[in-house]
Amino acid sequence: MITFFNGIGACSIGIHVLLEEAGADFENRIIDLANREQFSPDYRAANPKGKVPAILREDGSLVTEFPAIALWIGHTYPEARMLPADFEGQLRVIEIMDYMVSSIHMRGFTFIFAPMKFHPDDPSAQEALRAHGRDQVKIGLDNLSETLGDKDWLLGDFTVAEGALFYMTRWCHQHGIEMPDNIRDHHQRMIARPAVQRALRADGLATPEKSGLAA
Rank of each mutant, 00 (worst) to 15 (best):
I2M: 15
I2K: 06
I2L: 11
I2T: 13
A10G: 03
S12G: 01
S12T: 00
I13H: 02
H16K: 00
V17F: 02
L18T: 02
E20M: 02
A22R: 07
A22M: 06
A24C: 03
D25N: 12
N28T: 03
I31H: 03
D32C: 10
A34H: 10
R36A: 15
E37K: 13
P41L: 14
D42I: 11
A45S: 14
A45G: 11
N47E: 05
P48R: 15
K49N: 12
K49A: 14
V52T: 15
P53M: 00
A54Y: 03
I55L: 15
E58M: 06
G60P: 09
V63M: 08
V63C: 05
A68N: 08
I69H: 04
L71V: 10
I73G: 06
I73L: 13
G74S: 07
R81Y: 02
R81G: 05
A85D: 14
A85W: 04
E88Q: 13
G89K: 06
Q90R: 15
L91D: 09
R92A: 10
V93E: 04
I94P: 00
D98G: 14
F109Y: 13
T110E: 09
F113K: 12
A114D: 08
A114P: 00
A114R: 15
M116Q: 11
K117F: 14
P120V: 12
D121W: 03
D121R: 05
D122K: 09
A125Y: 02
Q126L: 07
R134T: 08
Q136G: 05
L144W: 06
S145D: 11
T147A: 13
G149L: 11
D152C: 12
D152W: 10
W153H: 09
L154P: 05
L154K: 10
L155D: 04
D157E: 12
T159E: 03
T159A: 03
T159K: 02
V160I: 15
A161V: 03
E162I: 04
E162G: 06
G163H: 01
L165A: 13
L165G: 06
F166W: 15
Y167N: 12
W171F: 14
W171Y: 13
W171T: 04
C172T: 10
H173P: 00
H175G: 01
G176D: 13
E178W: 07
D181Y: 06
I183D: 08
D185A: 15
H187V: 06
Q188S: 14
M190N: 07
M190Y: 01
M190E: 04
I191N: 07
A192G: 07
R193M: 04
P194I: 04
V196S: 02
A199C: 07
A199W: 03
R201M: 11
R201D: 08
R201K: 15
G204H: 11
G204V: 14
G204L: 13
L205G: 04
A206D: 15
K210I: 07
K210W: 01
S211Y: 02
L213P: 00
A214G: 05
